[in-house]
Computed example of a mutant assay.
Amino acid sequence: MLTVSQRATVLPASPIRRLVPYANAAKARGTKVYHLNIGQPDIATPECALQAVRENRVQVVSYTDSAGNLSYREGLVEYYKKLGIGLEPRDIIVTQGGSEAILFAFLGCMDPGDEVLIPEPFYANYNGFAQEAGIKVVPIPSSIENDFALPPVEEFERRITPRTRAIMICNPNNPTGYLYSQGEIEQLGAIASRYDLYILADEVYREFCYDGHKHFSVMQLRGLEDRTILMDSVSKRYSLCGVRVGAFICRNRELVAAVLKYAQARLCPGTYSQMAAEAALKAPESYFKQVYDEYVARRNFMVNALNAMPGVYSPMPKGAFYTQVRLPLHDADAFALWLLEEFEYQGQTVMIAPASGFYATPGLGKDEARLAYVLKIEDLRAAMETLAVALKRYTGR
């Protein structure tokens, strides 16, 4: 009898996307669904990126370099130079989205059975990538009580075993919106140095740091060049989610050479995708200023609206465009499904991402959900009004 592989069987479903069939069914019934579940910006893509694809002169769409086009990697060197991060093109492997960069990092740094320490809650797909690589995620719980700040150093140290190979963070954090300070990053660097570990950082939300807070990259840690890995993406920065272009970045020549073999096995990143991503590097500062101001306004509106609802608590995110909220109920998964299957208010409902999928520790996050403030304020206003009514009507508290 044919069976599905055990690997595929245990691979977790995405808490961000697994309710999509129910959202589609609600739409088919004529219900408008406000998508607060996914980080899909409605901000316009920079015109220079769209124009580069529209007006290209390519006659043959051929394979590109497995590491990515040299001109794009040279452009990325200049981009990071402005951030105080010194790189060479050979330190960069262009990937098919930030997702592939994460998978490459896991495959390059760890063998099956090895362990990576990650503060939770964390981006849900880390679990899936770890399963694919055959490694174990060891969660370090953080708490909404202190707005998901970095857990104490002792919590990391007591979970280190002979199989521990790396520490990983997302900064600014998805799903919480927490921004790790320079001091917190340096604490992680000290642990990595003391226990001979890699330190992996998903920094795709770097441009979205609010209220005067500044981003500090792991690539700025001194003396740790051989053990720091940056995973990046153009998806959120330039509203280019669909081009699927990211980057694996490391100054460790041996590790980059090893990861390049994975890049060669999948041949190359896309021609037109890199064309758009390279052109996006020319986006004017005015573009980022407009985007920044828009997200600050959306954040302030949504967080204030949430905290005005009885029993709801949302920290004020310092970065990214998400907040992880505590809801006055016992099972956010059941509530999220109810919103799509049974509830509507004035012909509309909301789709949220239950937080249990962002934890690796069973039982955590059952009363929490991640909400993305990626909709214009007019839509956020309608979504918050709808959510408030839903919480009042829901009987499964």
Results as ranks from 00 to 15, higher is better:
Y178W: 03
P151S: 09
G270H: 03
A26H: 07
K81S: 15
L240E: 08
N37K: 11
V234C: 06
F301S: 02
A360Y: 02
L371V: 11
A332C: 11
L380C: 09
L87K: 10
A277Y: 06
I352F: 00
D367I: 01
C209F: 08
R158Y: 07
V312S: 00
M219W: 04
L179V: 14
I43A: 14
P46Q: 13
Q290T: 12
V61H: 13
A26T: 02
A101Q: 02
C48S: 15
L339A: 07
M110W: 13
G270L: 03
D333K: 12
D147P: 01
R222K: 15
V77N: 00
A334W: 00
L255C: 08
A124G: 06
L87H: 06
M1Y: 06
E145Q: 11
H213P: 00
R18V: 15
I135F: 13
P12S: 11
D331R: 00
D367G: 00
D65H: 11
R57W: 14
E47G: 11
Q324W: 03
F288I: 08
Y126D: 09
F156L: 08
P317Q: 04
V77Y: 00
P162I: 07
Y34R: 01
V303N: 07
P315S: 11
L87S: 01
D91K: 08
H330Q: 14
R393F: 10
D232L: 00
D293M: 07
T386H: 01
